[in-house]
Design a binder for these strands. Sequence first.
DNA 1: TAGAGCTATGGAAACGTTACCGGTAACGGT
DNA 2: ACCGTTACCGGTAACGTTTCCATAGCTCTA
Lengths: 343, 343
Amino acid sequence: MSEITIVEIARRCGVGVSTVSRAINNHSDINPETKKRIMEVIRETGYIPNNSARNLKRTDAKCIAVLVRGITNPFFAPMIEVVEKEVEERKYALVMRHVESHEDEVDVALELEKEKRLRGIIFMGGAAKHSAEKIKQLSVPVVFATIGSDIADDLSRNEYSTVSVDDEKESFKVVEYLIGLGHKKIAILTEGSDTPSIVKLRLKGYLGALEKHGIKPDEKLIRYVDRRIYTFSNGYDTTKALIESGEKFTALYCISDVLAVGALRALADSGIKVPEDVSVVGYDGQEIAEYCVPRLTTLRQPMVDISKEAMKLLFSIIDKESGHKHIVFPGELIIGESTRKIK
Amino acid sequence: MSEITIVEIARRCGVGVSTVSRAINNHSDINPETKKRIMEVIRETGYIPNNSARNLKRTDAKCIAVLVRGITNPFFAPMIEVVEKEVEERKYALVMRHVESHEDEVDVALELEKEKRLRGIIFMGGAAKHSAEKIKQLSVPVVFATIGSDIADDLSRNEYSTVSVDDEKESFKVVEYLIGLGHKKIAILTEGSDTPSIVKLRLKGYLGALEKHGIKPDEKLIRYVDRRIYTFSNGYDTTKALIESGEKFTALYCISDVLAVGALRALADSGIKVPEDVSVVGYDGQEIAEYCVPRLTTLRQPMVDISKEAMKLLFSIIDKESGHKHIVFPGELIIGESTRKIK
DNA sequence: TAGAGCTATGGAAACGTTACCGGTAACGGT
DNA sequence: ACCGTTACCGGTAACGTTTCCATAGCTCTA
């Protein structure tokens, strides 16, 4: 443990601690020569100011936190790029935190808030419901990105912001597109956890579209992936199981592109041709959709727009130029090569 | 800003601050009833201990830091899973930090070290060379995962650990495999930055294999991707350029699976069949390699083993059960469907 | 019954910074 | 010769914790 402190530096330089502090934080009231001498000593001793002590005193550090559940999901990559750029532009510090599977993102935020002098928080991914009580404890503005506005029913909607697509509506659109192609036996790969989430909305959209067109939903065509984390293999296994169950289906709707890629492979391995035998559609519009074979039809969420808007909104709330809002972006159905009219 | 402090809690409860502290940290010397009363007040006021102040005093918090350059790269996903599990098992706290493109990971570590009471640091990804001077400033054990042992020539090898594959040797193996299939015109997609990195080693392995088999390397077949971040589109564009240059090649070696996936698409778009016309091989052994069409031949790094070993090693160094080491795992050539004997 | 040994508590000194408040010296202008 | 500035700098009080030490009230035991 580097035991050396600002006091030690001051002693070695034969100056007062405040002078050292001034040197470090390049304040004005200091002789350039003294400063040089001090910096010299600092460099050669390898002294680093203790941040805890700093934060304890300081009150002006401008910092925003971004908490991402499942930061390794490539879905977030373009969003994170935007965030980094935006934050740097405004001269804020950024702390990006991956929230682990067993952690509660709001708890993490709560902790972070005391540790750093946060000015705002952005949540990405994660559960769509949170305890209103907890969110209220957060004393800085909060915006949820990619998660719709019904995060906590019992929480006044103007205590937090959301920027997202309308998952139910977009999902509806996707399924209606498939129906328009003549599909009636449409299977869906979705997530089984019972925590309320955006995924539930996608399922709702699916059911809604079927209903509107008088197609009776078939329990057996609704498949749940095992784990909450989306992986190719998860999509693969679930699709395999679906195929082996012998249920007939002509289209497969995966609520995430990652699952869809796994599904494509499973279908191919079983000798089922896409799109000749089965049409496949994904959701999210990740980069991979363009690169798989066949190119995946998917619902693109405007990730960049969402994150840009989330940042803009957060900053304007911080600057009191705006109150909380709930912004909905339209999704875009990208037609790839994985879907076609039914024969 | 939640202005309420431990003093305030003490005041409201009519007890001393030390008693409150005892309650919070569930120490033994406290009347259960007092404790209950205090906890009650804490809950209803929403008080959260200030972590900066805490860390300033505390000296026993067991915490390890994991710094990942490009945490959104799916390559790290399985490694991060391991880390989380391992850390939790040992009852350490974990701070996982994404290091941004413009940051220096050692600087970030240095800062973190003062902020938290770190016991150890793991670096994943990132540059393969660091200033020895800086690394020495780190006062806790450091292990680099996926980065070989020549991180800083001028630094004594027993001041840090590494766990990785031998990138040069594995790369050699890959190219030799292609040569064994009869390929002579082997193009490579690599990275152009001049910061020393593991990628350089892979290029070296490529050149070495060619030389050993008496094949003269062709400048025009060595292609550099634009940006340091690997993306599908980066692989796509660079491959497109290669194809359009008219250079003849029968095999394409991409130093990352991500690039390879982009390459596959570019080849397909140009009507070049894989593996009939061109063999393609990747590197890393990411999950995607198994799911693309055709399945990618790739060099699998044992990500899970590497990260497990890295954790084990770090902990044993922390516990003084071991000194620094440099562990090399063998890679494994996974034969997919993207390579074949030349006609 | 005096002292020893608990249990539960409060007081206060750190931890390493920063920021405010003064103080000294030098210097120029009247 | 005096005063007002200015340029530097040092001392010290916070910041919110934890931890050591002291103490008060007990219960035991010899």
